[in-house]
């Protein structure tokens, strides 16, 4: 039996490793990158409007690229997929990027999709008055422990010198019932996505809603960005450049108010569960969050700009909350295009 085990254990290890290694894609840069795999952060929805627009309108094809856009999800991590060679480009939040960099991941940020983080807190003004961050005192605040909303809220409380014992945190998951029932005063929500759906539902029930925006309270925590690996950038700079140009031009077109109807159609095609009436509202808000530089005519060209100060602030927040153990000098990992 012992001899059998002695033979079986190494064999099991070899089989496991062969399966695991063979399931990893080709490491980026080792040969050609056709087709290109682009892993989003979340499922197809309004936050990927420009990505979907690029696909539908042939932006990648015009650059001579074949791109497979793959939806993300709660268990998907684009940075891991980049390293494992299963994707060439991906979308990740700033906290994911900073965590990855702090652990030696060779990741590079190409485009910052959102200039303002869409994460806000929804509340009912009939029950709660929030005119300034100080009004958060003694409120029941929903946060996802371990999520970036926790980091943002803790940074906000610290900035306004509100002790964490002066508020009540409520652990938030998928179910909104505690908010509907009034057990929780403020609930974290993506302003351009679920907020429109939940808000419509509550307004139909004559229950007015309002939003508390950490960005307007001076907390600049970067949201989604397009990333790739340093190796990809070094070995295929042309491909990276073409991909980035195609994507940015597609996002600018998608955010252009003159294309509203076609964008709604494109997003609804990929996200059939969200009605066009909802998408039109979501699109307006997404435009304000991605191009907050005045009107589109003036600000559109700045889409994708990497906000270095906001990235440094995000790194500092994570450092202060010991989510990373040492500074990572994030500016070294931000690829600023001319």
């Amino acid at each position: 039996m012992k001899n059998f085990l002695k033979k079986l254990i190494p064999l099991a290890m070899v089989v496991f490793m062969v399966i695991a290694i063979s399931s990893c894609g080709q490491k980026n840069g080792s040969s050609s990158v056709d087709p290109i795999n682009y892993r989003l952060k979340w499922l197809f929805n309004i936050s990927s409007a420009g990505d979907l627009w690029a696909d539908v309108n042939g932006h990648f094809q015009r650059q001579g690229l074949t791109v497979n856009i793959k939806p993300g999800g709660p268990e998907r991590d684009a940075i891991r997929e980049l390293e494992l060679g299963r994707a060439h480009f991906g979308v990740a939040s700033a906290d994911q990027v900073i965590r990855a960099v702090s652990k030696g991941s060779p990741v590079v940020v190409l485009v910052q999709l959102f200039q303002i983080n869409p994460l806000q807190w929804i509340y009912r003004p009939q029950h709660v008055t929030i005119e300034s961050p100080e009004d958060l005192t003694s409120k029941n605040i929903g946060i996802t422990f371990g999520g970036n909303d926790e980091t943002i809220m803790r940074a906000l409380l610290s900035k306004y010198q509100i002790g964490e014992n002066e508020v009540n945190f409520f652990s938030v998951r998928y179910d909104y019932t505690p908010f509907y029932k009034g057990d929780v005063d403020l609930w974290p929500i993506y302003r351009n996505a679920q907020a429109v759906i939940i808000g419509k539902r509550l307004q139909e029930a004559n229950d007015p809603i309002a939003f508390f925006d950490p960005h307007s309270a001076g907390i600049r925590f970067v949201a989604n960005s397009v990333v790739t690996t340093q190796k990809m950038l070094k070995d295929h700079p042309e491909t990276v450049k073409k991909f980035t140009q195609a994507l940015v031009s597609a996002w600018i077109e998608a955010m252009d108010p003159t294309n509203t109807e076609k964008v709604i159609e494109a997003v609804h095609h990929f996200d059939p569960d969200t009605s066009p009436e909802i998408i039109v509202e979501q699109l307006k808000i997404t435009r304000d969050l991605t191009i907050p530089f005045g009107d589109f005519e003036k600000g559109g060209q700045f889409f994708g700009k990497i906000d270095l100060a906001a990235w440094k602030e995000t790194e500092n927040m994570m450092l202060n909350q010991q989510l990373i153990h040492a500074p990572v000098n994030i500016e070294q990992y931000l690829n600023v295009w001319d």
């Binding site: 290890m13 490793m17 990893c24 652990k103």
Partner: peptide, 26 residues
């Protein structure tokens, strides 16, 4: 311990064979 050991040793082997960062496999 045998099963867990095989699993974790295989993970570490993959990490070092593919030169993966601590973000993917610690």
């Amino acid at each position: 311990f045998i099963v867990y050991g095989i699993g974790i040793c295989s993970l570490f082997s993959i990490k070092y064979i593919l030169n993966l960062s601590d973000y993917v496999i610690p």
